[in-house]
Design a protein around this nucleic acid. Structure first.
Length: 203
DNA sequence: AATTTGCCCAACCGCAGACTC
DNA sequence: GGAGTCTGCGGTTGGGCAAAT
């Protein structure tokens, strides 16, 4: 499924616009960056870039570290369990990729964002095209009398980033496995809340 | 075998909020 | 408290590659 990730492609993915080096990172650049971060830690990226002698901006160094060099990065296929979790979290949080990634150890926000854009968004669209695209909140409300919207109101792009007090909209997604039915969804919600008590701040 | 098409994903960009002086 | 700088985030781009033609 997933292709091998090139370690250090030499060809730039982007044309350089300024003096700073851009495009794909080389093995040597990775090595230098890792060495500096080992000494100074993953912060003060401008200084890290300078110390490493890399002709790159701090921003670029940070991105490289977070998405590639950081320890415990999990590479390769997204498992079914992970995919399921991404779907659920996306329903709760919308396009808050960093938050979603925070719940998937070893996965980066960029990876999840890419996976969503290339795989999951299509799956959902296909499902909606098959007639499952009714408003999730409406569906929930039709079933659940005391359903109260707790949404963020930030779904400016029409994303299903709202939830209800009963959380039952999650059940409407046939792509979610049956284990999420009935009391189990509340159990999952409880676990989710336990994981991050501050999550309501984001809604 | 050569060309085209579509997908994947690393990397860049712009913006907003946090931080520092 | 204000200005300047840094950091983190989400959206987008485009090169590389495999599959299809």
């Amino acid at each position: 499924m997933s292709k091998m990730i090139p370690i250090a492609p030499n060809l730039s993915r982007r044309l350089p616009k300024r003096e700073a080096n851009r495009g794909a990172w080389t093995t040597e650049e990775d090595r230098k960056l890792a060495q500096v971060i080992e000494v100074h830690g993953p912060r003060r990226w401008k200084m890290v870039a300078a110390k490493a002698g890399l002709n790159r901006c701090g921003k670029s160094c940070r991105l490289r570290w977070l998405n590639y060099l950081r320890p415990n990065i999990k590479r390769g296929n997204i498992s079914d369990q992970e995919e399921d979790l991404i779907l659920r979290l996306h329903k709760l949080l919308g396009n808050r990729w960093s938050l979603i990634a925070g719940r998937l150890p070893g996965r980066t926000d960029n990876e999840i964002k890419n996976y969503w854009n290339s795989h999951l968004s299509k799956k959902i669209k296909q499902k909606e095209d098959r007639g499952g695209g009714a408003n999730l909140l409406q569906q929930c409300g039709a079933r659940c009398a005391d359903c109260v919207t707790m949404g963020s109101g930030s779904g400016a792009k029409g994303e299903p980033n709202e939830m209800t007090s009963c959380g039952s909209f999650i059940q409407d997604d046939a792509m979610l496995d049956s284990s999420f039915q009935e009391p189990i969804n509340l159990e999952w919600m409880s676990k989710f809340l336990e994981m991050d008590e501050g999550w309501l701040d984001f809604l």
